[in-house]
Amino acid sequence: MSGIVCAIRGGPASQPTIEKAITVAAENEIPLFFLYVINLQFLTRTSISRTNALVEELHEMGEFILSAAQAQAQARGVSAEGVIRDGQVLDEIIQLCQEVEADYVVLGQPKNQKDQNVFTHERLSAFGQRIEQESGAKVVLAEGKSE
């Protein structure tokens, strides 16, 4: 198997990443996997531990966000699959890359430090190296969008 893995969160900040992933998939004619990761880290700031209902809701929301991205890909003639995982974003990207033997991983690159992005430039660079080492996939960076 081969493919492209693209982790998304939805929202305007993810648009350039989605576009780039679709372009790479169209050019290489390989399957595209949009990944949505549910991360409940934000709950550490509260006293809540009852997460069942929340995870269900986030799954629903993730499916909605993935279906919008899939529709976008389909409009450009690219077939895309949506994958939802629970856990740490970085670990789940690597995990999926290994599972689908991905050739490429498309990551969003913040245009400036003010951009709301999972990665800073430094973390992105370190993470890119880690992906290439652990999965063999090539990292493609999508330029972030200024807001």
Binding site: R9, G10, N39, F42, R45, T46, S47, L54, L58, M61
Partner: peptide
Amino acid sequence: LIGASANMVTAGIAEGAGYPIS
């Protein structure tokens, strides 16, 4: 944002959808 747990939960879910609340 830190004034109520409901704010934090809302912000966390919104961020997960790509709409962070600073």
